[in-house]
Nucleic acid binder design. Sequence first.
DNA 1: ACCAATTACAACTACTTAGTTGGAAAATGG
DNA 2: CCATTTTCCAACTAAGTAGTTGTAATTGGT
Lengths: 212, 212
Amino acid sequence: MAWDTERTKSLLLEAATSEFCTRGLAGARIDRIAAEAGVNKERIYQYFGNKNGLFDAVIVAALSSLMDEVPIHGEGPEAMANYAGRLFDHHQDDATAPRLLFWEGLERGTEVVGLPKRMANCASKVNSTIAALPGISKEDAGDLLITIVSLCDTAPVLPALDGLMAGNDPGRLERRRAAVVRTVYLAASALAAEAASAGSPTAEIAPAPVVQ
Amino acid sequence: MAWDTERTKSLLLEAATSEFCTRGLAGARIDRIAAEAGVNKERIYQYFGNKNGLFDAVIVAALSSLMDEVPIHGEGPEAMANYAGRLFDHHQDDATAPRLLFWEGLERGTEVVGLPKRMANCASKVNSTIAALPGISKEDAGDLLITIVSLCDTAPVLPALDGLMAGNDPGRLERRRAAVVRTVYLAASALAAEAASAGSPTAEIAPAPVVQ
DNA sequence: ACCAATTACAACTACTTAGTTGGAAAATGG
DNA sequence: CCATTTTCCAACTAAGTAGTTGTAATTGGT
């Protein structure tokens, strides 16, 4: 049998993704990852250095591939709302990315791994957002994307919140999805209107409220 | 010296809150909590049963007290936007509640502790929301609250996301706050308008978009 | 087919962890 | 002031834990 180190690596990465996704960095067990991959755990230290290095590799791989899997298509506020809907569906189908994102935030804080690649990914999404909503600023585009991520990624990570707040009726998922899509549509519309009437103190739709 | 078991309990609870907040359930260390509280760790097992019991006590205490600390005041969409702003500020000042909420979601999943008390807390907030936006349904009120929690609690748990998406300019926090407040205002306005024109297919402001 | 380098792995180590225990110190009631 | 109960705690235990090592199997170049 030929050596297939890439296969061994990807088996480990896959098992590690599953383990870190469900248990986080502190809760994950090296032995369990190796057993799940059907590989000796010593391989982990050869290929990834240590537990932290393996976690890094998992984070970078999972969060980068997500960027390609759910692209922004079309133009106008509808395009951003549509993107939010597809992101919501994707995370609902597979909660790996949101869970890893929050594990990283909680266990690593501001120490972000793979920074250049991830900054490029984010910049690309910001540019797509500006393309969809011509005239808005980079900062507003980033803010809209943070809003979308907040709304779409929270649901699969806090599965109990929905039941606690809105009951367990059938069709809850669809209603929550609709609420997210609509909220993003409203936020994107407001930004687009603001950009269209640039300079003017009054926006077309939904003037910025003066609160607090 | 008189026995002051309540003080011992609260010292442990305080130290445990800090430890679980920063490290989560799997990452927390019983020895560290006892040392921080200046109490022998055997007391933890007498008072709280085990590590999980202590975590439960921390979760219930922290998330319940939050409900009283940030109330909903006033009426109209502005009231909900104002509530979101105050919740945002509160979490920014002290990230304990959001961090514990996400730790619980990630490490416990749907298994929610202190269910009756927390259901009552949520129902109370839903009722306040209905009082602020007369005519909206329980489900819409719950959805709006989930949106607010998603927007306000994500920021302190994912401290790197903001820098990645929108840069590190001074005044970023204020801009993010304004974006959250405005988004909540728009969502609340749409629900209020829908409730006002109940039955009518067209809402006053911001008709529900037909996306996807 | 042989050999140096690489890949695999079982057994091992040094250390940390949650949870326990036996007895000392302090309070309470008579 | 003594007997009983409750609170406290240092030392202990049993079960993991991340990471290492010595050795055998497998490879490609020659």
